[in-house]
């Protein structure tokens, strides 16, 4: 589709907010931010702010929703009505239903659900402010909240989106770049076990561009996961 040609890469090769193409926004992470939840985390990528809470493993509220040999994971990705420029209806949209699914499937590869048969592990994610990259920030926050809840995991998961703007691959796209860009490739991965756990492409890319974008994302995710480890350790420092 013909996208409005907006100049988002300057002559010096910098982005509209001054970042280099392979530069992340300022990232902030904090765990244990809620008192009721078994685990919780707040994650910021620039103006994008996401909070995640984990309840469980616990007895399922709907008794039929069980598996005899392992835990069931329930994930809800939800945007606060005030998180966007125009108010978002709090009713779940088709987008939120799809994202809840891909986020659940980005976390399942690192969990060990067979440790907790007949239970549910609930992950509730609220996007408090949306400025691009909310699903990947959500995966990052959910991974932290699961670890904070003490749920055994094979590895931590982190996420980031790579976009294509004015023909240039850029890391960690914000809303301006996402809506004007030619492609958006959100990726989540567990670098410690070498798995990509979320992979979507919205846009048109050649195979070489996909290769380059995946490499760019995976390098950033290694850094994001290190930040997650620091945030988890910080909770126990005094």
């Amino acid at each position: 589709m013909a996208k409005a040609q907006v100049q988002l890469i300057s002559e010096e090769g910098l982005r509209h907010d001054g970042r280099r193409p392979d530069e992340l926004r300022p990232i902030r992470m904090k765990v244990g931010v809620l008192s009721n939840a078994d685990g919780s985390a707040l994650v910021e990528f620039g103006k994008t702010r996401v909070i995640a809470a984990v309840y469980g493993p616990r007895e399922p509220i709907q008794k039929y929703m069980v598996l005899p040999d392992r835990a069931v994971l329930r994930v809800r990705y939800h945007m606060a009505p005030f998180s966007t420029s125009e108010r978002k209806s709090p009713a779940p949209s088709r987008r939120e239903i799809e994202l809840s699914k891909v986020i659940r499937e980005s976390l399942e590869p690192v969990l060990l659900p067979e440790y907790f048969p007949r239970t549910t592990i609930d992950v509730f994610i609220e996007v408090l402010q949306a400025d691009g990259g909310t699903r990947t920030a959500s995966v990052t926050a959910a991974s932290l909240a699961l670890a904070d809840a003490g749920i055994p995991m094979k590895a931590l998961v982190g996420g980031v989106a790579v976009g294509k703007v004015n023909g240039v691959l850029v890391l960690d796209v914000d809303e301006v770049e996402d809506s004007a860009g030619e492609a958006d490739l959100p990726i989540a991965a567990a670098p410690d076990i070498g798995l990509i756990t979320l992979f979507q492409l919205n846009g048109v890319l050649t195979r070489d561009e996909i290769r380059a974008a995946v490499n760019m994302a995976l390098k950033a995710i290694e850094y994001i996961v290190e930040k997650e480890k620091e945030a988890l350790k910080a909770k126990y420092e005094f």
Binding site: V102, L195, T197, Q200, L201
Partner: peptide, 9 residues
């Protein structure tokens, strides 16, 4: 593109 299902790649 879309990865779907509970595992990773």
């Amino acid at each position: 593109a879309q990865k779907t299902g509970p595992g990773g790649l």
